[in-house]
Simulated scan of single mutants.
Amino acid sequence: MIKREFLQDHKSLDFKFYQNVDDFIVEEVPIKFAGRGNFIIAKIKKQKLGTWDLIESLAKGLRIYDNELGYAGLKDKNATTTQYISIPKKYSKDLKQFRHNKIKILETTLHGSKLNIGDLIGNKFEINLHEVQAQDVGKIEKLLKQISKVGMPNYFGFQRFGYDGLENLEKARKYIYEDYQIKDRKISKMLVAAYQSDFFNKWLVERLKQSDDSFKAMDGDVFRDYREDKFFTPKNFTEIMQKDFEDKKIVPTGLLPGQKAFRSIKDARKIEEMFDDTYIKEKGYRRDAIVYPSDISVSFDKNTNKCKVKFTLPKASYATVLIENIANRNLKA
């Protein structure tokens, strides 16, 4: 597994980070719901349950198929998380009777369609860092402000690759290139996604080598327009485009190799093609190279040496990567 590198080259900060229900709190920032329609949107708080565990528990409790339920994103198991789940309106009576010791339905509204992956704006995080030195609190605050300005490299975090990351990547390689059988379609999709993500992370490390204090956009990059949410590749990278990038109107993207994904051109392609794989038959994607944390706050309890950091990240980005960026060290492989 490649070591995740960052734009800030400071001495590593020595603190402890734990993922548990007290120290890792996540709340989904939802899209705007219609307030009417054939689907109940339930705001649900859960502990020690992953999203798939939540879906399984809800389906069992409501006596329905799990594919009738919709969700916008996957949330960690070892955390206290709040997320939105869509349920067909016809099960409203059953939902009112639903009880589970790790699941609490906070509120409900209505919407016109089932929730799908990506139907969210982002996530709010509240994370406790332990054994923080008092002199490092100011450094943490300064780093977070700097990262919010220049952006955080949008790596896939260690969770993407599973507990046995290297072993999972090898299984994915055998599944793609050899006659390695995986009966569970969900597992095979997860392994291939991890394999694609590893290419992206390696590409991002290489691109950071071409950058200094901020990410360097290149001629031939595929950009995403934030407002239109569309990809485009300009014939030439101009000063106006550089200004748009600095003003956070557009962002360079990296490739998750696969079918039907845009490829970069020119100088950007020379780097990208080293981390491409046209043999992968699954759908490919592009992912923002950097993301910008917002709503940042830092507080410190000198009696416990515990530092609480709060921030919001766009969807599909990892809070653990931001913690790594602050610490300037990888938490796990």
Rank of each mutant, 00 (worst) to 15 (best):
V132S: 01
Q133Y: 11
T108D: 05
A172Y: 00
K171V: 09
L144P: 03
D136Y: 08
E141R: 13
R173C: 00
D136C: 02
L106C: 02
K174L: 12
N154Q: 02
L110Y: 14
T109E: 02
T109F: 00
Q133F: 15
N128T: 12
K114H: 07
R160M: 01
L144D: 01
M152H: 09
I117R: 07
N123V: 11
K171Y: 13
P153Q: 05
I140L: 02
G138V: 11
R173N: 14
P153R: 00
N123H: 04
D119T: 09
L106Y: 06
F158G: 13
R160K: 13
E107H: 06
F156V: 09
Y155R: 10
L166Q: 14
G157T: 07
G138N: 12
I121L: 08
I121F: 07
N154C: 03
D136A: 05
D136P: 11
E141W: 07
L115A: 09
L166E: 15
I117E: 01
N128S: 14
Y175N: 04
M152Q: 13
G118D: 04
K139Q: 14
K124L: 07
P153T: 02
D119E: 02
E170W: 08
K174H: 08
A134Y: 12
L110F: 15
N128C: 15
G138M: 12
P153V: 00
L106K: 10
H130P: 03
H130R: 14
L120R: 07
S148Y: 03
L144I: 01
I121R: 15
Y155I: 10
G118M: 06
L120T: 03
T109R: 07
N128D: 15
F156E: 10
K174P: 01
L129S: 00
K145D: 14
S113Y: 05
K139Y: 04
V137G: 09
N168R: 00
G138C: 07
G112I: 06
Q135I: 13
G162W: 04
K124Q: 10
E167Y: 14
K171R: 13
Y155A: 07
